[in-house]
């Protein structure tokens, strides 16, 4: 009897403590800012370096919701976040023209790369044109893993197929519907080709046998933009906070943090505002 009362006591204390913590978090909310972004910026650790500097300067805490570009845009459209940081220009333009987003800024870029197994069964190594390489992969019916999740990388991949004039289908073309990291792991296991952003690949380099086979094509340029959600759409959108974050990201300090960010000694992102 004593024991169960003791347990109950612990149980209630835990619950009260938790609710208290959450309530405190709730009170702080005006100072919280919600950023929906792509997995590539979160998974590489860039935001973990960028955001503490912002919070230190402004006292604003940023909640990062890392999802694919497609979903990040949906969250913006529904007013569930205050700003988005994504990499799919065509979708970004639509987001703005539909009236959901305002004040887009170019932020930084890196590039996409076509990854594949070291023995390169389709023989695409050395090609400079991404769409030609894609044509060869499809002609050879070599395994190709597509993100299939409406992300920025997926959007770009579809654009490349369109440029090559191919509608990919067949057992060699696998739509994973997963994040970049998971897709790289899958491609590694299935000895398949895939399109990736350089940042995610570099951060996973020591965990995969895949190598970079095609790079440097203009079609593989990967620019990231940052857009505030239109405050006219939903009440309570933290527009001011969003603009302050955009200001910080495009400031000299923000841009230099982006330019100096290194993973395994390699630069992952190139600032676009102040070069």
């Amino acid at each position: 009897m004593k024991k169960i009362k003791f347990l109950l006591f612990i149980f209630i204390i835990t619950a009260v403590y938790t609710l208290n913590c959450f309530a405190e978090g709730q009170l702080e909310k005006p100072a919280r800012l919600r950023l929906a972004t792509t997995t590539s910026t979160e998974n590489t650790g860039l935001l973990d370096t960028l955001l503490p500097a912002f919070t230190k300067n402004t006292g604003i805490k940023v909640d990062v919701i890392a999802v694919g570009t497609g979903k990040a845009i949906t969250l913006g459209e529904n007013g569930d976040v205050d700003l988005i940081m994504v990499h799919a220009r065509s979708k970004e333009d639509k987001f703005i023209s539909d009236g959901y987003g305002v004040n887009r800024r170019d932020l930084m870029h890196n590039d996409f790369i076509i990854l594949g197994p070291p023995d390169d069964p389709a023989g695409i190594s050395g090609y400079n044109s991404a769409s030609e390489a894609m044509e060869m992969i499809s002609g050879n019916k070599s395994n190709f893993i597509s993100r299939g999740d409406d992300s920025g990388t997926h959007t770009r991949e579809k654009e490349l197929w369109t440029t090559a004039g191919i509608t990919p289908s067949g057992t060699w073309y696998k739509e994973a519907g997963q994040g970049m990291g998971a897709v790289i792991t899958m491609a590694d296991d299935l000895e398949a080709y895939t399109l990736s952003d350089r940042g995610t690949f570099l951060s996973m380099k020591d965990k995969t046998d895949l190598i970079v086979l095609v790079e440097g094509d203009n079609n593989l340029f990967n620019p990231y933009g940052v857009i505030a959600v239109n405050p006219a759409l939903y009440e309570g959108v933290n527009y001011e906070g969003a603009m302050r974050l955009i200001a910080f990201l495009t400031s000299a300090e923000g841009q230099s943090i982006i330019g100096n960010f290194r993973k395994n000694g390699e630069q992952l992102f190139y600032p676009d505002v102040i070069k």
Binding site: K29, E77, N78, G79, D80, Y234, E235, G236, V237
Partner: peptide, 11 residues
Amino acid sequence: ISRSGPLGGLR
């Protein structure tokens, strides 16, 4: 509970 949903105001 999405801001575009009926209880969106509760955040």
